[in-house]
Nucleic acid binder design. Sequence first.
DNA 1: GTCTATAAGTCGATAGAC
DNA 2: GTCTATCGACTTATAGAC
Lengths: 189, 189
Amino acid sequence: MAERGAYAKGVVRREEILAAALDVFSREGYRGTSLRDIAKQVGVSLPGLMHYFDSKEHLLTAILQKRDQVDAEAHPADGDFLDGLLVIMRHNRDVPGLVQLYITLAAAAEDPSHPAHAFFIERFAFLRLTLAEVIRDRQSAGMARADLDPEHVARILIAVADGIQIQWALDRSVDMAGDIERLWDAISS
Amino acid sequence: MAERGAYAKGVVRREEILAAALDVFSREGYRGTSLRDIAKQVGVSLPGLMHYFDSKEHLLTAILQKRDQVDAEAHPADGDFLDGLLVIMRHNRDVPGLVQLYITLAAAAEDPSHPAHAFFIERFAFLRLTLAEVIRDRQSAGMARADLDPEHVARILIAVADGIQIQWALDRSVDMAGDIERLWDAISS
DNA sequence: GTCTATAAGTCGATAGAC
DNA sequence: GTCTATCGACTTATAGAC
């Protein structure tokens, strides 16, 4: 990895590879694709790929991190963070491979030694904190019942978002964003 | 597989192996364990294992099916099916390996050629149907708001159950059954 | 029907030349 | 920094004794 040798060229090349890998996983599905396949589609050799990523698990984790970063930039919320989450859920219909990768890695990340372990813990903590804040704001604005527990509802919304992706992966007619929206309507009024 | 040769002895042995494998996965975690390891822990040889199961994916799918069957028998609902689901969620705290296996296989089952594909589609269809019926019964009994859409709420409850398991796997202090119960309280009154 | 033994292919990961 | 070549471990799968 580029530790103190974080020279411009190395960082740029790594970002290029990451962007290409993200694109591959977005279009094609993630079906336990081998590193050789990824390297070929990205346009580097297998050791060329592993020069920038310590292991397959590290690469997959970096792809998910990059995805979050790209999503946040490409889909700025026109409302609050919950609105933004719905926009991303709608966008997820176009990237089934990333949805599958996300769930697979979330399950594997249970192991504390997995590279994605810290990523998911921090991700969930951030989502809980940010969503709870949104709920509090909506309560203040009279847009939600005052007796809702913001922390609890935040956790539930995250769980629904993850769980509904599993159902959508098996049946593409599931309306992920719509179902979350309807849940919010039912819970907030 | 025991197709038309479903002789008593073969079926019994298969069930023994399945029960042993279920026990192994319940106690130990599922961390991409090899078939050789499973065979060793179950007490058979690798070909002995593969005589009863066509592939690793078939074995893992059979383990999940067996789990559902065992759960249904071991944890009879003292109330309706939703109460029963909460009982199973509480029991899930004791079998982290099965929780991880369930999520991992659910993600992999997106592929229509995966042995677990049909299993998960049928499982979700059964859960939706049964839970929607419970919700209708509770509405009739005046235990839930009449304006709830039973099919929608059923899908949401399944999603929350799956999604909350991901969060629990990363943070064992999460109260899976309690969070679902509180969601129902918020949604039904 | 169940075992021991083993083969063929592919995986992630690494060594070493340039 | 990128390649060729290769390693050990894993997978599925089969042959053949009992």
